[in-house]
Nucleic acid binder design. Structure first.
Length: 435
DNA sequence: GTTCTAGAAC
DNA sequence: GTTCTAGAAC
């Protein structure tokens, strides 16, 4: 057979198709489920105004469709109708039936990660073939966590891929309230877990849509339930899936999980977070106090900022100022700067809030030093100014990279060309011990 | 971003 | 001989 041209390729919109979660097999009350689902979607759409995606609820339960429709109408405000659509249909035949291609679809799965326990996953199993459960098992040998998402690629030769254009199924372990099925949870627990499910579903979609991978949490450090009955059973072999490597050049992506799921990190890593930002301790602080204030929304780096992001930058600045105030209470001797590196190493825009002592074993080389003490470091005010006046940011890469190699000068006195880093450290100690 | 290490600098 | 840096690997 010859290759079909991409006949319906006029749009490059990336779509997520998902069913009403937990309302059929999970027996979760439909009205509340619709409320929770719509709230999460609204929050997501408010946070992400990219034009490259659409969300589509596709179900054949008319009660669920109606509940979502009326709830959405009630809360959507001025959000674009196309961004979230509600359709009657079968998730596996969306293109066939409705002419809509969803690159990603969502299906519920039980915490045992078995595909044969609900209608949709059974259908997927039947369509893709018996190799598919093996693949799911290979990727996720451990029990799933309720509320978490587990993306799996659809084989390229499957008709789901060739005919429907589905590239991945995001399996979600959704809460179950049906007492005749395993691990039923109370309504109150289920409410939180359903919200968590929708949130992780959106996070997974966001990562996949942006060409990254989504890494579900497999080992829980927090207080969420872990499904012990299965993991303690002797049938479970000792093979554990190593935590996924962060892909090629993965080190650059380490900040993403803090934005996606700040709640799973211990207090020692994440200081605090809200819907808009997360504040973490720099893993390798270059001074006595060194924090990162990061927007939750994905912004790769400073050059992606536009004038409209001034509002966001000002909010980050406010957060940073609060933190400085707190840290000054602990140690009034400290001075602070907050700002951005002209050229970031790590992906995801992050604002450094760093004390100016620079006394830290992690400050090891010229690059470290120059990145915080030359004009490579851009105070947040400067970024604000550039955005206000110019509307965009573009820094000359070669110039700034050279700056990192320039000679080591003291940031407090006129001592220039300090011979090496150990000498610098001695010099800094002298400043610190003054007065 | 860090770690590792060859070889430059002392 | 030891210290330190710089560049590759991760």
């Amino acid at each position: 057979m010859d290759k079909r041209p991409n006949d319906i390729q006029q749009t490059s919109i990336i779509r997520l198709g998902f069913p009403s979660i937990s309302t059929s097999f999970g027996e979760f009350p439909i009205d509340i489920a619709a409320e929770i689902g719509c709230e999460v979607i609204k929050e997501f759409l408010n946070l992400h105004n990219e034009t490259d995606f659409e969300l589509i609820l596709i179900d054949n339960d008319t009660k669920a469709l109606n509940a979502f429709e009326s709830k959405w109408k009630e809360i959507k405000n001025d959000l674009d109708d196309l961004k979230f659509q509600i359709k009657n249909g079968n998730l596996l035949q969306i293109k066939d039936e409705l002419g809509i291609e969803c690159r990603y679809i969502v299906a519920e799965i039980t915490w045992r990660m078995k595909l044969n326990t609900n209608h949709l996953s059974k259908q997927i199993l039947n369509t893709v073939g018996s190799k598919f459960p093996e693949e799911v098992k290979r990727l996720y040998p451990n029990p799933g966590i309720v509320g978490e998402s587990y993306p799996v690629s659809i084989p390229k030769d499957s008709i789901l891929h060739t005919d429907e254009g589905i590239e991945q199924v995001i399996f979600v372990v959704s809460p179950n309230m049906n007492p005749s099925r395993s691990n039923p949870v109370s309504f109150n627990e289920a409410k939180d877990l359903l919200k968590k499910t929708y949130n992780s579903m959106m996070n997974a979609f966001l990562e996949l849509k942006n060409g990254r991978e989504y890494y579900p949490v497999t080992i829980k450090k927090g207080n969420l339930q872990v499904n012990k009955p299965f993991s303690t059973s002797s049938s479970q072999s000792s093979l554990k899936r190593p935590l996924p490597k962060l892909g090629g050049g993965g080190w650059a992506n380490v900040l993403f999980p803090y934005c996606q799921q700040p709640e799973i990190f211990p207090k020692s890593e994440v200081y605090c977070y809200d819907d808009e930002s997360v504040i973490i301790y720099d893993k390798y602080p270059k001074a006595k106090k060194h924090l990162l204030v990061i927007p939750r929304k994905h912004i790769d780096n400073i050059e992606e900022l536009k004038k409209k992001d001034l509002e966001l930058i000002r909010k980050l600045k406010e957060k940073g100022q609060e933190m400085i105030k707190k840290m000054k209470q602990d140690n009034p001797k400290l001075d602070f700067r907050m700002g951005f590196h002209a050229i970031q190493s790590l992906k995801q825009l992050h604002m450094h809030v760093i004390s100016q002592d620079f006394i830290s074993p992690n400050l090891k080389n010229k690059k470290h030093w120059n990145s915080f003490t030359t004009e490579f470091f851009k105070d947040v005010e400067e970024i604000e100014k550039i955005l206000e006046e110019q509307g965009f940011i573009k820094f000359d890469k070669a110039y700034y990279e050279n700056l990192l190699k320039s000679s080591v000068n003291c940031h407090l006195c006129n001592m220039k060309s300090i011979k090496n880093i150990p000498n610098l450290k001695e010099h800094l100690k002298d400043h610190w011990n003054e007065d």
